[in-house]
Amino acid sequence: MSTLYPVTVTVNGSPVTRHVEARLSLSDFLRQELELTGTHVGCEQGVCGACTVRLDGRITRSCLVFAVQADGGEIETVEGLSDNGEIDDLQTAFHERNALQCGYCTPGMLITANELLKKNPSASRAEIREELSGNYCRCTGYHAIVDAVETTGRQRQGGAK
């Protein structure tokens, strides 16, 4: 049996400790050890973006970090961001605009889009497309996603004024 390493992380605000193999990716750690299955795995090579989470405040591909490396870190997943309401407006816009079909890319897409809107709520359609260009969606053709992100950005700007 391979060596097990202790990992203590704060996930969606709650501290958790597990003992895992060094080779366990953060995405598999979240999905298998913590049963947070909202983080999806699509390629395991950092390309598709479905596994995007927030690690220590930065959006990160959880398939490209080993769980042991996240030790001591703070992780936020789509479940946590749903529970605390941070992305509620974006979720509502995605729903109303049908900016998701199969939903597999959606958690990563929401987390990435939220990051963009935090920096630049007035992002143009071209800027939105650029920022989302690391997240695969095979269903929507992106148009509806861009619509939903644009709409949410406008709402957030309005709210800030």
């Binding site: 930065r58 990160t60 690391g134």
Partner: peptide, 9 residues
């Protein structure tokens, strides 16, 4: 260089 989530790390 790649995308924001890659540049994070």
């Amino acid at each position: 260089i790649a995308h924001e989530a890659i540049r994070s790390r």
